[in-house]
């Protein structure tokens, strides 16, 4: 046991908490820089504590590697991580996400034309969205083979229902007054759809798209636990866990975290561009 590390770790966490407390209750507490500073500083504090605990208590690397060891592994094996990233994220998750989103949107437009279908499909869709859909991974791996196609198929099914339910909900979001106005313009079904109802539905659609970003990555990674070629993030995680090379596992988790947050951030950014008119996007609150 190494007390210097432990003392240093707790001292720095205390110091950071104190500074955060001062900043959060201080004069400039509503400024953007403060809002960025406090969480980032808190995260750094946690990382320091983690490092200090691992070093100070001498935790073996097969149980919990230190952040520095994870970072070393990350920078040393970027080529492997990149291959895995392309296999799982670009080929599996992203292609499945796009296909699933398009399919869900098309079905939503179809469902929306018939009230009967909507009343029948919406409860079923809501029900499916709450199920552990990830369980179909072994079946789809059996059907579509070990390569990325089966992962994309899992992702398609996983993202389909949240996007479908949200889109159908969104297509109903227009008010009677607005639809009547389109009618007085003698607008056709398609004109009403593309000029009024689809734009009105976009906040709902993006809600579904944002939920689906995380699901897509989870689906692609977990599907690889059921069989994959010798590359991919899920494959790497399951095999490196078996070899107790936990620094590599954490490096993959770091990649997954970065990819997941970036994917979510990208969709949120597009949402801000597309639905700038919606009250939830107003700045200054």
């Amino acid at each position: 046991m190494d007390f210097e590390w432990l003392l240093g770790g707790f001292a720095s966490l205390l110091a950071i908490s104190y500074v955060n407390l001062q900043v959060a209750n201080g004069g400039g507490r509503d400024q953007a820089i403060t809002r960025l500073f406090v969480p980032v500083f808190f995260g750094i504090g946690l990382l320091i504590l983690w490092e200090a605990l691992v070093q100070g208590l001498g935790v073996p690397g097969v149980i919990l590697p230190a952040p520095s060891a994870i970072w070393d592994r990350f920078t040393a094996s970027t080529n492997i991580l990149w291959v895995d990233f392309v296999q799982t994220f670009v080929k599996g998750a992203l292609s499945g996400y796009v296909m699933g989103a398009i399919a869900a949107f098309a079905v939503a437009l179809l469902v929306d034309r018939s009230d009967f279908l909507r009343r029948g499909l919406l409860p079923v869709g809501n029900f499916m969205a709450a199920l552990p859909i990830i369980g179909i991974a072994p079946i789809l791996v059996m059907w579509f083979g070990f390569d990325w196609q089966s992962k994309a198929a899992v992702v398609v099914v996983m993202v389909f229902f949240p996007i479908l339910v949200n889109t159908v909900e969104g297509l109903r979001a227009t008010e009677r007054m607005q639809r009547d106005l389109m009618k007085t313009y003698a607008a056709s079904y398609w004109q009403t759809l593309f000029k009024l109802r689809v734009p009105a539905a976009t906040p709902f659609v993006f809600n579904g798209l944002k939920i689906a970003t995380t699901l897509a990555l989870i689906g692609a990674i977990v599907a690889e636990f059921f069989g994959s070629p010798i590359k991919g993030m899920g494959f790497r995680i399951s095999t490196e866990v078996g070899r107790l090379a936990l620094d590599m596992v954490w490096a993959e988790i770091l990649v997954a975290a970065i990819a997941g947050s970036a994917f979510y951030g990208l969709v949120a950014l597009i949402e801000r561009r597309v639905t700038f008119w919606h009250p939830s996007q107003r700045r200054g609150r």
């Binding site: 955060n20 969480p39 808190f42 995380t214 990674i221 997941g260 947050s261």
Partner: peptide, 19 residues
């Protein structure tokens, strides 16, 4: 609120299941 909440929200975008 300022320190933890952003992490709580950001953690939702991370595929935790992978670990």
């Amino acid at each position: 609120n300022m320190a933890v909440m952003p992490w709580a929200i950001a953690s939702q975008t991370i595929p935790i299941l992978a670990i």
